[in-house]
Design a protein around this nucleic acid. Structure first.
Lengths: 336, 336
DNA sequence: GCTCCTTCAGAATACGATTTCTATTATAGC
DNA sequence: GCTATAATAGAAATCGTATTCTGAAGGAGC
């Protein structure tokens, strides 16, 4: 394949390289006859501009970055991310943007990725997922004015753009539903305690208890890492309480399922002895037995809005509003 | 944040811009004292080179592309891709490469993505997943000499670099196991008939039947799309046979699970009346009841080798060997 | 003391597009 | 018929880095 640059096209069409660029950019300041001549050559040779040169000159790469704040092993089994990535890719594609995915394993690599992607100008903006309640990265990004959008939320800094699932509302809905269906001793199993999601859903859980005048018992709240062993032992702890809980709100489908499995291993019947509700409404819910009642997070909506917001930001505008909340809904199945 | 480019660093360190570049590239042709002076300034200002300029100048973006040949909806629930993406990102990161993910929904968008990513030089090479048995893209990429690696395999073109799961062997293993454990009427539910995976696994299935002298009955082979409805109706078809199958090899965990669900809906006991084996050993297998016996595909190994191969290619070397096969293993659980 | 390397750093160029600046021509207005 | 104004296209500068080319200084060898 021969060298194919604008100068070649220009030479063949008998015009200047600047004119070729103008034609390709749709500049109206160019005569129809010239335009046609250039386009003919472009068509014939199948010329496509070099994105690297465009990036340097225009100072924009048309690449968005997605940084997932979780170790690859933990990421591996989670369908949430497939869905998120797929939706972001699709939405970004509509605006001619591409997506660059990175995972941030350790604290060190987080900094590295931040340097790598943004300081090097490799991407035009970032989408961050699963932020901690206090996060130096966010402070810094925000201070330095880099375009980024959070999927989640961040209290400490006011100006942060974010799209969040209505976690408080969703956990309220789940807990409220359990209370209304007669459950008395409802437990909550969170993910890592530092995560904002973990805390927001805990808040919703507490709100629901309070709204029904049910006392909050801290022994019924436990936390787990994103792996089965940790969740199972958290569940075992709950089962040792006297009296044991008769319902569990899991922060996550995988957590709820692991907990449910553990309960069954201890001989409890679901949902007769104990009910379970998870979050995400992943395909899993549907296949297990009893099928898992779950809060459906609207992942495509999260992805769409976050992407739109980020593109708005990278193009220099101020998104309105800066914080969006995507409603969730309860999908009733057999486990609760 | 002030303008931060090599010229600034050079000015502050009292050297030329070329020297700054040399220091950062680790060029040995530079005196220690100068090097130290430059590095001090770089450190202090936290200078990081501009990837866009580097890309243009060096003609390499250090970006790899992953093109997933499936619609976003179908992608959404599948944990296979989370795992694949996570592993590729990790492996690529070790060589200072990043990953750009794209999905190719329609035939048109496939071409578009190909143009977008490669012709524009936006990425240095591509990893393709889920190829069809005949694929124009592959022919073209290969003809034009673009660096790419297939996860899967492609018979028609000899020189194609690929890393494949040992699908024939794995399906053989699954079928062989079912025969050895006394199953007589084993069915196979494939994915879309055009996919190489579908056909390879079918081949392994046939091989196993043959090696045991069991007759191959084409009525026991059906195909499904990647969604539950399609799979359920394929399974229903199988259940209508007289006699019905007493075991099913599903091309995929989701297919196997959907089929199993359908069988249970028809009152069949698993594994007593009918056994099921899936592929991928996704977390799902573990949570369902009965838990699903599955062929574990070594996704990290696939990802690692494909990534290594692609990087070798993009750096101008010839990978040895060009085709790799990653072995699979049977994970026995309750369903078979 | 002279030439010949070697070592090292600065100057200059290249990468391939976008965009500003400049020049040409044609048209309008008087 | 002369200037003013568009309309249009070419020339040239620019984006920030990598690298080739060039030159200066110092040491070795005789």
């Amino acid at each position: 394949m021969a060298e194919l640059k604008q100068v070649e096209i220009a030479r063949l069409a008998g015009v200047s390289q600047a004119t070729v660029s103008r034609v390709l950019k749709g500049d109206p300041q160019v005569n129809d006859e010239m335009r046609a001549r250039v386009l003919a050559v472009v068509q014939e040779l199948g010329y496509v501009p070099d994105a690297r040169a465009q990036s340097l000159r225009s100072q924009r790469t048309r690449l968005l970055g997605l940084v997932v704040h979780r170790a690859p092993e933990a990421l591996a089994g989670d369908p949430f991310f497939s869905a998120l990535i797929a939706s972001i890719v699709e939405q970004a594609g509509k605006h001619d943007y591409h997506l660059c995915v990175d995972t941030a394993r350790t604290a060190r690599s987080q900094r590295a990725i931040y340097e790598e992607l943004l300081r090097t100008r490799r991407v035009d903006g970032l989408i961050l997922v699963e932020s901690e309640t206090h996060d130096k990265r966010i402070e810094r990004l925000s201070r330095e004015g880099f375009p980024f959008v959070l999927i989640g939320r961040y209290e400490p800094v006011d100006a942060v753009c974010s799209v969040d699932n209505d976690n408080i509302g969703a956990a309220f809905m789940a807990t409220d539903y359990l209370i209304r269906t007669g459950r008395k001793r409802i437990a909550y199993i969170g993910g890592p305690a530092g995560l904002t999601v973990t805390r927001d859903r805990l808040q919703g859980y507490k709100n629901a208890l309070e709204s029904h005048g049910v006392g909050y018992d801290p022994r019924r709240v436990v936390f787990a890492e994103f792996n089965e062993r940790s969740t199972a032992s958290a569940m075992a702890e709950l089962l040792n309480l006297t009296p044991p809980p008769d319902a569990v709100v899991g922060m996550d489908d995988l957590i709820a399922l692991s907990a449910m499995r553990e309960a069954k291993r201890h001989g409890r019947r679901v949902p007769e002895d104990i009910a379970f509700i998870g979050f995400n409404d992943s395909p899993l819910c549907h296949y297990v037995e009893p099928s898992l009642t779950s809060i459906a997070v609207d992942i495509p909506a999260l992805a769409r809005r976050a992407t739109e917001m980020l593109i708005t930001l990278t193009e220099g505008h101020e998104p309105q509003p800066k914080r969006q909340i995507v409603p969730a809904r309860l999908v009733k199945r057999e486990s609760a």
